[in-house]
Simulated scan of single mutants.
Amino acid sequence: MVYVASDDRYEAMRYNRVGRSGLKLPAVSLGLWHNFGGIDAYENGREMIVRSFDLGITHFDLANNYGPPAGSAEELFGRVLARDLAPYRDELIISTKAGYYMWPGPYGDWGSRKYMLASLDQSLKRLGVDYVDVFYSHRPDPHTPLEETMGALAHAVRSGKALYVGLSNYSAEQTAEAIRILNELGTPLLIHQPSYSLLDRWIENGLQEELDKHGIGSIAFTPLAQGMLTNKYLNGIPADSRAAGPSTALSESRITPEALRKIRALNQMAVSRGMTLAQFALLWTLRGGKVTSALIGASRVSQIEENIAALGHSDFTPEELERIENILHTDAEAGG
């Protein structure tokens, strides 16, 4: 059956300008970090991708190592693009990254020019495209001069293999230096992709200010704190949850009694607004317009539909924001 995109795909989604650039991203983007690998069901991944596009998600975020196995998420997306989304390529923002281990030997990891550009070529083949819209340095390399890594990003744009460049997991200080170098190279930084959620607010300690100063966008990954900010953990740790399994991204040790107290209090606020906890957390991440887009993951279509529905709720009042801060900063002994 030939896929035809929904005619009303742009009616409900909100699109935010990326810093001072000419590009806009959907307020909610889809990340293919988990559940789109070679070990996962292709048809489920395809359904999530095309349903996302029908709901106005135009941005699909990948990396060379997403899977498992590494590279298989790009291959899956490439298959869906060729089969279903090829007529809509110019409506899509496809991003990928390089920075983590991909192949044996000294040239298959980190941030050297050799690795970054070889990895990009491999990603383009897996995706079946001539260029990606955004190419990221996935993490800073302590052993490679920043000038070399940023030079590789700039070369990717000059060669026509990427339209924009981004950073992920860089500190405020590293980001400031990268901005300076990229400006000198004539390829300004478009976007930074940091972790950010109600339970992980490190970007408020300098990074967000640096991005605002230079007119650079941000896209928050793990806005639901690897599932902690969903209904899944309200009554403890289910046996089939990520926290109970071998995942290194979310360990059982993070779900402490204190964390559960905060999550349950936030959930009470969400319910009073007619929202799920996940919707509440996404709306908070996007509050005030500082974060360009919230990057969600999903294992089924219904989760994507639930998350996008967050955009239909009213923004938080100052009183609600103050109450959220009280929940997050009141210790267990004080109640709350």
Results as ranks from 00 to 15, higher is better:
residue 292 T to I: 03
residue 90 D to E: 15
residue 101 Y to P: 07
residue 278 A to K: 03
residue 334 A to N: 13
residue 178 A to Y: 00
residue 106 P to G: 06
residue 260 L to Q: 14
residue 115 Y to R: 01
residue 178 A to I: 00
residue 37 G to D: 03
residue 8 D to W: 01
residue 265 A to M: 11
residue 122 Q to C: 10
residue 265 A to D: 11
residue 308 I to H: 05
residue 315 D to Y: 07
residue 197 S to F: 10
residue 98 A to I: 00
residue 66 Y to V: 01
residue 202 W to Y: 13
residue 25 L to K: 02
residue 297 G to R: 03
residue 103 W to H: 13
residue 118 A to W: 13
residue 99 G to M: 00
residue 74 E to Y: 08
residue 157 V to H: 07
residue 294 A to K: 04
residue 249 A to W: 15
residue 130 D to R: 06
residue 322 E to N: 10
residue 23 L to M: 14
residue 15 Y to P: 09
residue 324 I to M: 13
residue 79 R to C: 00
residue 168 S to L: 02
residue 218 S to Q: 07
residue 126 R to Q: 08
residue 220 A to E: 05
residue 27 A to E: 12
residue 45 G to A: 00
residue 129 V to Q: 07
residue 39 I to G: 04
residue 8 D to Y: 03
residue 198 L to I: 04
residue 148 E to C: 06
residue 58 T to S: 15
residue 232 K to R: 15
residue 224 L to F: 03
residue 228 M to P: 06
residue 305 E to F: 00
residue 112 S to H: 05
residue 52 S to P: 00
residue 314 S to K: 15
residue 304 I to F: 02
residue 259 A to V: 15
residue 164 Y to R: 08
residue 112 S to L: 05
residue 198 L to C: 02
residue 71 G to V: 03
residue 133 D to G: 09
residue 92 L to R: 12
residue 274 G to A: 07
residue 158 R to H: 07
residue 147 E to H: 09
residue 154 A to M: 02
residue 65 N to V: 14
residue 222 T to F: 15
residue 148 E to H: 07
residue 176 A to H: 13
residue 200 D to R: 13
residue 7 D to P: 14
residue 100 Y to R: 09
residue 295 L to H: 08
residue 124 L to R: 09
residue 49 I to V: 14
residue 329 H to K: 12
residue 171 S to K: 06
residue 290 K to W: 13
residue 186 G to R: 03
residue 270 A to M: 05
residue 212 D to Q: 15
residue 308 I to L: 14
residue 76 L to P: 00
residue 310 A to F: 11
residue 269 M to T: 10
residue 184 E to D: 15
residue 226 Q to Y: 14
residue 100 Y to S: 14
residue 152 A to T: 05
residue 227 G to N: 08
residue 284 W to V: 05
residue 200 D to Q: 14
residue 134 V to L: 04
residue 272 S to T: 07
residue 217 G to L: 08
residue 284 W to A: 00
residue 334 A to T: 10
residue 299 S to T: 10
residue 155 H to D: 12
residue 148 E to S: 08
residue 244 A to F: 12
residue 307 N to P: 06
residue 263 I to V: 15
residue 157 V to W: 03
residue 197 S to I: 06
residue 115 Y to G: 00
residue 139 R to I: 10
residue 64 N to G: 01
residue 10 Y to Q: 15
residue 310 A to C: 10
residue 311 L to A: 07
residue 145 P to Q: 12
residue 23 L to W: 11
residue 193 Q to F: 09
residue 329 H to L: 13
residue 267 N to S: 09
residue 76 L to H: 06
residue 178 A to G: 12
residue 334 A to F: 12
residue 107 Y to E: 15
residue 176 A to L: 11
residue 175 T to Y: 09
residue 237 I to M: 08
residue 97 K to T: 01
residue 329 H to W: 13
residue 101 Y to K: 12
residue 209 E to I: 09
